[in-house]
Amino acid sequence: MAKIKGAVVVNTERCKGCDLCVVACPPHTLALSKEANTKGYNYAYMANPDSCTGCASCAYVCPDACITVYKVKL
């Protein structure tokens, strides 16, 4: 089966660190960063980028539409 690789880009300024994407991410790719954005929110980021499959679960549940999702078949 062709391997699928994904990646997400988080709009770190728009993110409010609500954690729902982290909870929703099946392969646990995402986590909240130690750094905070200018509003003081610990934004989401790909802690384990290799595990991302581009399934966009994070983007579906994100209340602020911060996440852009990419996917490619290898």
């Binding site: 409010k16 729902l20 581009g54 209340p63 602020d64 539409a65 852009t68 999702v69 990419y70």
Partner: peptide, 23 residues
């Protein structure tokens, strides 16, 4: 390789809702 992005109809104004709000 784009799968999903914020719809343009939802503009770039940051929403005032509390983190995690269903709104």
């Amino acid at each position: 390789n784009l799968v999903y992005k914020k719809p343009d109809v939802l503009n770039d104004t940051p929403m005032h809702y509390c983190p995690g709000c269903s709104h």
